[in-house]
Design a protein around this nucleic acid. Structure first.
Lengths: 332, 332
DNA sequence: TTGTAGGCGTTATCAT
DNA sequence: ATGATAACGCCTACAA
């Protein structure tokens, strides 16, 4: 490995001068600077990040913990976070939590062990972080899901508002028997339950039935679960003319499941999702959905981490992403 | 920050003993070990990875460079690589290259700067790595795409074999005018051109037309490009009863584009893709495709990196993933 | 403008 | 079985 010492020898200066050149510091004559740069180029020297880190206590890496990187929504989010982080000079290491509370708590511990400068946690299961190493000693920003009562910086989805707008849109299109395909534990405060409440709020506002048989539970937030739920809905014999799916991934599964039963979208049933994953524009039919501004969310999350790294003690702040209702073929 | 020195003081031993306990080394009496573990627990000590790295020269991190993490195929691949790496005790940092040769070369340089222990490079554009820092001084494994004439460890897709099988399958279903939707530069050796050759080989073997007008060029490997290609194909007036799409992502775009023109799959045109991304099972109609064993590929790539870290000088090896033909609704 | 000394937290080596 | 010492490569502080 080529060290500063080697470069110094090659350029005939002290290693301190090399350090000054590498870090673009003042007080190096142009002649020496050129000589050093040339020596760096010839030797192929690279700064040793570990050594620098050891002194500075910073790694320049922030962790991003998501349930599974291969779910369209999280892949999309990760891409945006990686780009936003690069713009601020950070690298991103991805942890997969497997959508389990243990995995999410592990990610926190893990990040500390690896000395990430901060962690962006897309928590879907961890709802009692107070039992865990909450005060981790480094910045944690919650992204998009659970709410923790102001104890963390938090970038939230417009869950309630978005679901309400989606449901109202179905009503505007003439739907009268609107089902919701959702899941998880609805008596806790989380993204899924908030969306459910948005759905209820819209029904109430429009004076539509709130019929328990129109509530289709879901066994996980996967396409397969959505497909199975659609089968149950179709086989139940309940009259339904609109479906709100709790995520686009689920909605794409529902779309498939309705096709399995010969039901046409939007002809027989209108369908709307939540997230606006890229695939939503390309499904057949294309999927109407609630489109939170993901880029805004990613940028905000990285910005909050960066701010907190600089000022660990500033009060936490909560933010809700703007959204747009994307009306496509599935609700024509 | 709690250091080994602090723990040592707390437990009344030397920091060397703490180090031995932390690393599960022999030669520490049970009594002392317990005392140290207790001190670690009470103090909340964590090893400083930077310091350890500085000594060992290893970071425990391997880079994974992919074009864009939010493309379904690469998201899926990343998830598998992350899991496989964890099983071998590595962490994964993801770099996005933007499918450009510059980005891919940057990833190599970058990995060295960050002192990754190795790099798994899913190169799609870089075809002249010899002009670049090829002998990077640390393990590079090429995953799934370009071929570099044996200069790297390489885990390849069954490009030619798979595309041939896909085309033959369309022929078996009765297709006689089989188009291919593909792109990139076909005179270089890469995944796309190999698949094209597989397509040609199957046509020749079955005695079918090799008609240049059935070659639909593609402006990138995206859904949008696939959609546009389908539009051109439909509008061209050429008689076509089967389409081979060079990737599933493109195929899903083609599916959408054919729907835009009122063409039914598989009724009017049969369609087959390549990759078997998760979405392929859920599209309407579900997508027949060539399914390379992605898990096998991810595990093999990580294994090759790990082997090369241990033995940098062993000869490179090339591997081709097994595949399976998944026949679904789009070719019924 | 440039150089020297010391230390960041860990581990390898060698001693006790 | 345990401890002292010296690196690893870099940077801060101070000296020349």
């Amino acid at each position: 490995m080529v060290t500063m010492q080697d470069v110094a020898r090659l350029a005939g200066v002290s290693k301190m001068t090399v350090s000054n050149v590498v870090n673009n510091r003042e007080g190096v004559s142009d002649a020496v600077r050129q000589r050093v740069l040339e020596a760096i180029r010839r030797s192929g020297y690279r700064v040793n990040v570990s050594a620098r880190t050891l002194k500075s206590g910073r790694t320049g890496v922030i962790g991003l913990a998501v349930p599974e990187i291969d779910r369209p929504y999280f892949g999309h989010l990760a891409a945006l976070v990686i780009d936003a982080a690069r713009r601020q000079g950070f690298h991103v290491a991805i942890e997969q939590t497997g959508a389990a509370a243990d995995g999410e708590a592990d990610a926190i511990t893990h990040s500390r062990t690896l000395h990430f400068d901060g962690l962006i946690l897309s928590a879907v299961a961890l709802d009692r972080l107070d039992d865990r190493p909450a005060e981790a000693g480094y910045p944690i920003v919650m992204l998009g899901e659970q709410d923790f009562g102001g104890r963390f910086d938090h970038v939230a989805m417009p869950n309630e508002e978005g679901a309400k707008a989606a449901t109202a849109h179905l009503a505007d299109r003439g739907c009268r028997r609107i089902a919701i395909v959702t899941g998880g534990v609805l008596d806790r405060v989380n993204a899924v339950s908030r969306r459910y409440h948005g759905y209820l709020a819209a029904l109430t506002e429009r004076g539509l039935d709130v019929d328990p048989s129109l509530f289709v539970p879901l066994d996980g937030l996967t396409m397969e679960a959505g497909r199975a739920a659609a089968h149950r809905l179709a086989d139940s014999g309940h009259e339904v003319d609109g479906v709100v799916a709790v995520t686009d991934t689920v909605a794409l599964g529902v779309l498939r499941g309705l096709a399995d039963r010969g039901l046409r979208v939007p002809g027989d049933i209108r369908l709307i999702g939540f997230d606006d994953v890229p695939e939503a524009s390309y499904s057949v039919p294309s999927l109407s959905t609630v489109a939170p501004d993901h880029e805004w969310m990613a940028a905000k999350a990285v910005e909050l981490v960066a701010q907190r790294i600089r000022a660990p003690l500033r009060p936490t702040s909560q933010h809700i992403a703007p959204f747009e209702l994307m009306t496509r073929e599935s609700t024509l």
